[in-house]
Design a protein around this nucleic acid. Structure first.
Lengths: 150, 150
DNA sequence: GTAAATTCGTTGCATTTACAACAATATTTT
DNA sequence: AAAATATTGTTGTAAATGCAACGAATTTAC
């Protein structure tokens, strides 16, 4: 069996580590860049969806977003139609740092793909999206309390 | 820019989450399966190397391994030549659960590669190894306190 | 239309994670 | 051989992470 997930785990931890170190400069603590990026790109999303996008526990997202709100990176706005949800928006402060996060991410993507041809890079992206779609099915299944059979 | 690292992050978090839930059954808490696997496969490694393999902070590995030792999953043995290092070995308890961890990992790898041809799976594995090698260079560079320029 | 189920958000608790700083040994440099 | 540097391991502290459990609003089922 090709152990692709072990490779993916190593890559992800290494990169998360790098990003966390680099974003301290913008007063973002561990993991927060993930939320800032998603909320900047999807203004008006709700917390629950952000957690799904990132693939993190709902309660983890809840606390991370609460802290981002306290530190002035994002704003929660009530919805008129639905009293239960709170829509999330980036503040000016978040909008200001977004380009820097993007730049860092772009650099890392380029670095990760060093030595790849254009075609290989495209292929990699497509293959990864397919893996991600496969994996998110199981993630949602298991997160809901179901048991995988193997 | 192809945002491969965002995909990789999503996949890795989803899978880590699944594994953590599934390995509770074997009394392994969050992240511990990573260490058990590496130490089973590399009996005699030292802590420092395990951290490098997994791509996790040295002190994180230190505490995780300490806990695994306390819970009877691994043993630390002093080296005769080098008084500084402690070699790590799996106990019988760890050796017993290793096949189950392997089975779970295999299942996840298969699930992740669903819809992939043999050739695509091979290609994916090769591309990922190349990305991993690129990324670990930067990780070590940044972890040592150096600043990337972008 | 009401009851049941689901969605969405929160908090209490236990745990992991990682930076900083230190100590001890080992290796390299001069 | 002594001094400087690197390696390996530990602990203090601060913070994130995630499960369990709750409440409230909404949607679905009957």
């Amino acid at each position: 069996m090709k152990e692709i997930l072990r490779e993916i785990g190593m890559i992800a931890r290494a990169l998360d580590s790098i990003s966390n170190i680099e974003f301290k400069e913008y007063d973002l603590t561990k993991g927060q860049y993930l939320y800032v990026v998603r909320i900047c790109e999807n203004p008006g999303v709700i917390q629950e969806k952000v957690a799904e996008m990132i693939k993190v526990d709902r309660t983890t997202a809840a606390r991370a977003i609460k802290k981002l709100e306290m530190n002035g990176f994002i704003e929660k706005k009530e919805d008129q139609q639905n009293k239960k949800i709170k829509k999330l928006f980036p503040t000016e402060k978040a909008k200001m740092i977004y380009p820097f996060i993007k730049k860092e991410h772009d650099y890392s993507d380029r670095m990760a793909l060093e030595g790849f041809s254009e075609e290989e890079a495209d292929l990699m992206y497509n293959l990864l999206q397919r893996v991600r779609k496969n994996v998110e099915k199981d993630w949602e299944y298991v997160k809901k309390g179901n048991k995988r059979n193997y």
